[in-house]
Deep mutational scan, measured.
Amino acid sequence: MALNTPQITPTKKITVRAIGEELPRGDYQRCPQCDMLFSLPEINSHQSAYCPRCQAKIRDGRDWSLTRLAAMAFTMLLLMPFAWGEPLLHIWLLGIRIDANVMQGIWQMTKQGDAITGSMVFFCVIGAPLILVTSIAYLWFGNRLGMNLRPVLLMLERLKEWVMLDIYLVGIGVASIKVQDYAHIQAGVGLFSFVALVILTTVTLSHLNVEELWERFYPQRPATRRDEKLRVCLGCHFTGYPDQRGRCPRCHIPLRLRRRHSLQKCWAALLASIVLLLPANLLPISIIYLNGGRQEDTILSGIMSLASSNIAVAGIVFIASILVPFTKVIVMFTLLLSIHFKCQQGLRTRILLLRMVTWIGRWSMLDLFVISLTMSLINRDQILAFTMGPAAFYFGAAVILTILAVEWLDSRLLWDAHESGNARFDD
């Protein structure tokens, strides 16, 4: 018995066209964080690309023209004298008006014999932002004059995390709450300039795509075929072959399989920071003279006294001054041990922890910024005066060393310790 099946006739004509040209192939790229070699397709503007294995951002879609970056830099340069030299806060102490600005706080630190601690604050609040705007201006002028731009481009990517104007702005709020127990506070004209400078700096850093600047100024022929001998440069993120001198053909720094002496430098910085954190938390970090009496505060006791007036601000200072430094030390110690013992479990967790400490590390400088600003506000000789204690130097040095330890660690070593050939990683 035959089955009668109805015929289905399409209502619209289906047209099949042959592909007349070869589909576009992607360029081969190595991930600078996990060293995976993959094919990167062509990316349009405002599109980002991520590593298929570790999800690290390979290409950032946010990109401004150099002219727009230069305009932002010149605007920031105009704001800087007002943000640093004009009063941020006014207080009335014992019937006398006192003005506080950024430069005055750094000068008070240096004047009291601790120039190293003052230079830490100076670099993060004044030096690094000033280098940022002058570097962008150098790129703008240098591109037109045919100057060598490689050193500036190499420095810009590392400079971003040292620009800490946003953290200093939080420190202004913390210092205001600490001082309000002794005097009446009012915002100064410099505060508005400083807030504007923070906003412009944040926007500029978020749109400063150094890798795209490398592509514009020093374009290189990408690798179009897969080759395990391809290496990625950690300076400019170019994937290719080393030249005859073993250097990256684009930025001219040595092109090595792994960062040289990464573990040794990381261990040295980490152990030194552990040693410095002990006096930083045991010795007094601030000293207040009130009517001839002397009151010393460690980091913890200062947080407890701050909690009596504002528990939320005390929580912020606790996280930045105690929780973050010790968390960074514990995480980095764990990561280094996992590399030495070739741990194969929990790779995803370790990668996330490394990215976390990379982002939060700079916030530990908050305590030094609060001390710097408070020193310029309260300084009335023996009637009422505020000065920093010996722990300030140890704390600042420990924070900087932990930042350097994270920067010096080559994250690809975590993958080397893991089993080879993993296309995915999980716990």
Rank of each mutant, 00 (worst) to 15 (best):
A2Q: 13
N4V: 14
Q7N: 12
Q7C: 10
I8R: 11
T9Y: 10
K13Y: 06
K13I: 14
I14E: 13
A18I: 01
D27S: 13
R30A: 13
Q33R: 15
M36D: 11
M36P: 00
F38T: 11
S39N: 10
A49C: 11
D63L: 15
T67D: 14
A71V: 15
T75P: 14
M76Y: 04
M76F: 04
M80Y: 09
L89I: 15
H90W: 03
I91K: 01
I91L: 05
G95K: 04
Q104T: 09
I106D: 01
Q108I: 14
T110E: 15
G113Y: 05
D114H: 11
V121K: 04
A128F: 00
P129H: 04
L130N: 08
L132S: 06
T134W: 12
W140P: 04
G142V: 06
M155C: 04
R158D: 15
E161I: 13
D166I: 15
D166F: 15
G171T: 13
Q186E: 11
G188A: 06
L191A: 14
A196H: 11
S206M: 15
L208E: 11
V210F: 12
E211L: 10
W214A: 15
W214K: 01
R216H: 05
P222D: 09
A223L: 12
T224D: 09
R225W: 07
D227I: 10
Q244I: 05
C248I: 00
C248W: 00
I253M: 02
I253V: 14
I253S: 15
R256C: 08
R259I: 06
S262H: 04
A268G: 03
L270H: 08
A272V: 03
I274C: 05
N281K: 05
S286H: 00
I287W: 03
I287R: 06
N291Y: 13
G292Q: 05
Q295W: 11
S301L: 08
S301A: 05
G302D: 00
I303L: 10
L306D: 00
L306N: 00
A307R: 07
I311L: 09
A312E: 12
F318L: 14
I319W: 05
I322L: 06
T327M: 10
I330R: 01
L336G: 11
H340G: 08
F341L: 09
F341A: 09
Q344E: 15
I351P: 14
L354D: 15
R355P: 05
W363K: 04
L366W: 03
V370L: 04
T374C: 11
M375N: 01
S376I: 13
S376F: 02
I378H: 00
I400Y: 05
L401I: 13
T402S: 02
E407Q: 10
E407G: 11
W408M: 04
D410R: 00
R412Y: 00
R412Q: 01
L413H: 15
L414N: 03
W415A: 09
E419W: 15
E419Y: 15
